[in-house]
Each structure stands twice: as C-alpha cells, then as structure tokens.
Deep mutational scan, measured.
Amino acid sequence: MTEYKLVVVGAGGVGKSALTIQLIQNHFVDEYDPTIEDSYRKQVVIDGETCLLDILDTAGQEEYSAMRDQYMRTGEGFLCVFAINNTKSFEDIHHYREQIKRVKDSEDVPMVLVGNKCDLPSRTVDTKQAQDLARSYGIPFIETSAKTRQGVDDAFYTLVREIRKHKEKMSKDGKKKKKKSKTKCVIM
C-alpha cells in the first residue's frame, strides 16, 4: 500500500485542523484551538488504489514558523489553505509557496490551493482571484467548507493525484537520464 505524506499549511484560523478532522473523523470542530502540530493517518481508496494518507496539520501562528522547514522537508505534497473571508490569509499563500519551493529546492512541488469556509456569506476573496492565482502557479484550486464537508475529500484526493503525477514524471525523467548515460565512448 502506497503511503502519501501530505502537509496542510496556511495562516492561523483558516480551518486547516477543521478540514483535516472532517476528512479523518467526519465531524466539524467549530471551536478554535490553535494547533502546534498534529499528525493523522487514514486509509482510503483513490482511483481504485488503496493508500495510506499521513497528514500533518501544522501551526499557522507566526511564533511556530521555525518548525516549518522541518515538516516541509518531509512532506510530499501540500494543501495551501486560505479562508475566503480573510484576504490576508490569501496573500500569505505566496509566502508559504515560496518557502516550500526553497526548502524542497524545487520549482515543481505537488500543491493544491484550497479556499476554505465557502459556506460563509462574508467572502472577501473572489473565486476568480483564487483561480487566477492557482493557474499562475500551475496547481489545482478547490473551494471547501469544513463545516458542510463540501470539497473536503476532493481537496485531499486531488493532492494525492498531483503527487502521483509528480512521481510518474520524475521516474520518466530518471529513465531518460539513465538511457543517456548508457551511451559509451570508444577510443581507438
């Protein structure tokens, strides 16, 4: 069974824990209790493949930012979460993405942009803004509501699919490099 290491990042209060708990335990946590770091595991079937999701729910508070490099190193894919009623959390996505790329030393890291709290009427981040940002990053965008469960499975499952595509691409690139290195030079 394939294991996928997913990391949920975003500013404090955007609903990272609520999304994760909704996926794992099928219930909505409405009281806000700032996370330092929590880890969850769940076995699911995605596109006919049974897999184990190892999900790291991270601290959004700035005082825990020193811990970010460590979990970013171990993560295979990242859910970059903002709240649709919090423009600052949307603007912060850029910083999370840049930090992930720096730590992973790669421009090509599996990510999904997630606009959470889409059940709320007080939207300050337009869907088109988020779609445009995701398009500019070359990553999928999904709106979710941890409260109603809308888009929750889709967000995590899409990230797994992005990781699969990335692994497939990397193995193809690896095979191309191996083929090239088999060419021999004969000096007579």
Rank of each mutant, 00 (worst) to 15 (best):
K16L: 00
G48A: 07
L79P: 01
L53F: 11
R41D: 00
D108A: 09
A134P: 09
K177V: 04
K178A: 07
K180A: 09
P121H: 10
I93S: 04
S106V: 12
T2H: 09
Q70V: 12
Y64P: 09
E49Q: 11
E62L: 09
S39D: 02
T158H: 11
K184A: 04
K5T: 09
K176P: 14
F156T: 05
Y64H: 12
E168T: 03
V152S: 13
L52N: 14
A146Y: 01
I100G: 03
V7A: 04
E63F: 02
K16M: 01
G115K: 03
A130Y: 14
C80L: 12
R135Q: 10
I55S: 03
K172Y: 14
N26T: 08
S171I: 02
Y4K: 15
T50S: 11
E31L: 06
G75K: 04
R102I: 08
A18F: 00
H94T: 13
A146S: 08
C80K: 01
R41P: 00
G60I: 01
T50I: 12
K104L: 13
H94A: 14
V112K: 01
T2F: 10
K117S: 14
M188A: 11
K175A: 12
L159T: 07
A66Y: 08
Q129I: 08
E162S: 12
D119M: 13
Y32Q: 02
K172L: 06
L23N: 12
R135E: 12
V44I: 15
F28P: 01
T58G: 02
G13N: 13
S145Y: 09
D105C: 09
V81R: 00
K178P: 12
Y64W: 10
I142W: 12
E98K: 02
Q150V: 03
Q131H: 11
I36P: 00
H95K: 13
F78T: 02
I36K: 00
D132R: 04
K5N: 12
N86R: 06
I100N: 01
R68S: 15
D173K: 13
S136P: 14
F156M: 05
D54N: 04
A155N: 02
C118E: 06
V114G: 01
C80N: 04
Y4G: 05
F28E: 00
E107L: 08
S39Y: 02
V103F: 15
I139K: 02
M170V: 12
Q99M: 15
Y32V: 02
S106P: 04
E62Y: 05
K16H: 00
L53Q: 03
D54P: 02
T2Q: 11
M188S: 12
G174H: 01
I187F: 08
Y4S: 12
D38R: 00
E107V: 08
K178G: 08
P34I: 02
S136G: 06
A130C: 12
C185I: 13
Q131I: 06
D132V: 05
K176T: 11
Q22I: 11
C185V: 13
T74C: 10
T74K: 07
A130V: 08
I142Q: 02
K180T: 15
S39K: 03
I163T: 04
T144Q: 03
S181C: 06
M72V: 09
M111G: 01
Q129E: 11
D126I: 05
K88T: 14
Y40Q: 00
K16Y: 01
Q25P: 00
G15Q: 01
V45Y: 04
V7P: 01
D126P: 07
A66W: 10
D154I: 04
V9A: 05
E3V: 04
R135L: 09
V112L: 10
V9M: 11
P110R: 02
D54H: 01
Q25S: 15
L159I: 08
P34V: 02
I36A: 01
I36L: 05
S122W: 06
G60V: 01
M72N: 10
E31W: 03
S89L: 02
K5S: 07
K167V: 05
A83H: 14
G77E: 01
V125S: 07
L56K: 01
Q129G: 14
K180Q: 05
E76K: 02
F28W: 10
E31Y: 05
E63N: 07
T144L: 03
E37W: 01
